[in-house]
Design a protein around this nucleic acid. Structure first.
Lengths: 357, 357
DNA sequence: GTGAAAGCGCTAACAA
DNA sequence: TTGTTAGCGCTTTCAC
């Protein structure tokens, strides 16, 4: 028991309560509550109304959200379990979600899963039923269906984001990873590339989705997949760097590299440059996500921008629908179109211009 | 009034309550509470104890944190108001704080201030006294002493981080910005640079601190400050880019540029390169913060690494001390030593090697 | 138009 | 060793 040294009369600080307002205004607590909540089913004399309002504001009174939540109202707290906050894409997404949530009157509780399903699970149990009104799962948890199921169990409202299509258990908002890859590969193909490598961050759902679509599109274009040219490393700049090194060590090199995300692409760019390879003259390189940062490496990275604002808006909308009991029970899978951003890191395949002339 | 369609018996979902456990175990609610809380001042027969424990676990019971908080216990919630989550340095810091807080049994509520003191203020009033046990203010709020004062008012426990020394109102944990600048400038001076520019992100406290120390150190070394070479832009990569452009437009150019943070340095690097300037052969460039990313631009950036783990640990320690009433009332100002990381973006000043030979 | 009172789920002082 | 009871601050039925 962590007994406080001085057990204050008011456990939660010196804030005025509805009772204080009531006493000073010479009305009952219920009147205060009703007036401050703008209860439309009751009417009050303008006199009481304004007095209560004035006294409340003089006192700096605001209802204790905890008591309110206990009473059955929403806490207006959304829990966001994020796979990895240090990933700039997630940072941007969180940023957007936080802002939008606040506009909708919700506070965001952030939980950092560190890519670890156990940690996410633990986090989730803290965010448990009664602590938050709903949860957003950002990124996936090693795609462990069991973990997801446990997390879902007992939650009133959940949406997931950026997990690929694999998760049918829960309403999910993704960017359209397949379309993104198609756009990127389309660009590379138009530049005459046929020897295209893919570097990816491993088990993550959306990453897998991108990789799968990459392989499909190559096939659809009658391009033989070179197994050595699909390399998996951690989805970090460091991972991208190592992936590039591995590609450079191949006996036969690709003329273009598609990275499963921008961070890896940034690392790969460095890896290529350290290996003495000129981008895009010798090797074209593209990423995925649309990080601001991709504009500031040299050469600027071609990428695909995930529609972060729209994704956030949709996710919150759907989540709040659930929280407020307005949603149907079916799990929806929403894919929002990303936008191709073609920049200096991609160019014609080395033999391509010659052929054209 | 947002009346729920079906006013369920249990406002907060189907979770079992202490009452349920008590009924099933045939004991009173207080017994349940005491046993589950490991109350040492009461003793129970092993029989009751184990039965209560078993039933509780069978039911999957866990105490409703909201009710508990209402009763006066801590909510174990820490509010973090962060100036800008999209800043990778803050992302890293938040990441660290979140992890450490969780280890200490605290959940983190994140509030995004978007560099705007008003927004921070609003955020803070949501994180109000009774909603969180304490708050961490990450980065500063336009150094608006009035805003800070308002935010502080009514908060039980607050620490601030990364605000420079300017804020005496509150216990603050910084990296030692002065020492960092000294290390960086020391390096540049040893490389023979005398024509050194500073680009900075404006009004932020820690940025100001770095800038001021920069100016002082130049003076201490008998170097005349060139006013054109101190340029202020937004503290983003974009801002750094523009700052570099402005420097390149100067009639007389510096041989080294110190950026107030890594993000600006990354932007500046791009700006220099776009301007046809070779780094570090023509101009040396260094940043501040120690972002992972600085390893992956070309050339890798010289920087100073803020001791993120230690800063987080200290801040949480001090905050929790306050929360648990263990702290003295004085406001402390703690500066933790950063670490110089010398990399390829800094080199000898253009004339320097010749002179040496 | 307004008030009294019950109760959300929990803890702790007081009783037994 | 265990139970009874009184709130924490709020909302909401029911009564006037």
């Amino acid at each position: 028991m962590d007994a406080d040294p001085k057990p204050t009369r008011r456990p939660h600080g010196p804030g005025p309560t509805a009772k204080d307002v009531a006493r000073l205004a010479g009305v009952s607590q219920s009147t205060v509550s009703r007036i401050l909540n703008g209860d439309r089913s009751h009417f009050f004399s303008e006199k009481t109304r304004s007095r209560v309002l004035r006294i409340a504001s003089d006192l700096g009174y605001s209802p204790n959200p905890i008591a309110r939540a206990l009473r059955g109202k929403h806490l207006n707290l959304i829990g966001v379990i994020v796979r990895e906050i240090s990933d700039p894409f997630f940072a941007a997404l969180i940023s957007e979600i936080t802002v939008q949530a606040r506009e909708l009157g919700f506070l965001v509780v952030l939980g950092h899963a560190h890519s670890d399903p156990d940690e996410a699970l633990e986090m989730s149990s803290i965010f448990d039923t009664r602590h938050t009104d709903g949860a957003v799962i950002l990124g996936d948890l090693k795609n462990d269906q069991a973990a997801i199921k446990k997390i879902l169990a007992g939650k009133r409202a959940v949406v997931a984001m950026c997990r690929g299509v694999s998760s049918a258990e829960v309403t999910t908002i993704n960017s359209d990873n397949r379309a993104g890859i198609e756009a990127l590969l389309g660009l590379l193909l138009r530049y005459g590339h046929r020897r295209i490598a893919f570097i990816d961050g491993g088990w993550l759902g959306d990453i897998q989705e991108r990789k799968n679509r990459f392989i499909e599109v190559l096939e659809e274009n009658g391009i033989q997949l070179e197994p050595d040219w699909v390399v998996t490393e951690a989805n970090t700049a460091e991972g991208g760097y190592r992936a590039a090194q591995r590609l450079l060590a191949c006996p036969s090199r690709p003329t273009a590299i598609l990275a499963s995300d921008d961070l890896m692409a940034i690392g790969a760019l460095k890896g290529l440059q350290d290996g003495g390879v000129r981008v895009p003259e010798e090797v074209s390189l593209a990423g995925f996500d649309g990080l601001e940062l991709t504009r500031f490496v040299s050469p600027a990275l071609t990428t695909v921008r995930q529609p972060v604002e729209e994704m956030s808006r949709t996710a919150l909308q759907l989540l709040i629908d659930q929280i407020e009991g307005r949603s149907t029970n079916e799990h929806r899978l929403i894919c929002l179109k990303p936008e191709l951003i073609s920049r200096a890191s991609t160019g014609p395949s080395p033999g391509f211009l010659r052929l054209q002339c």
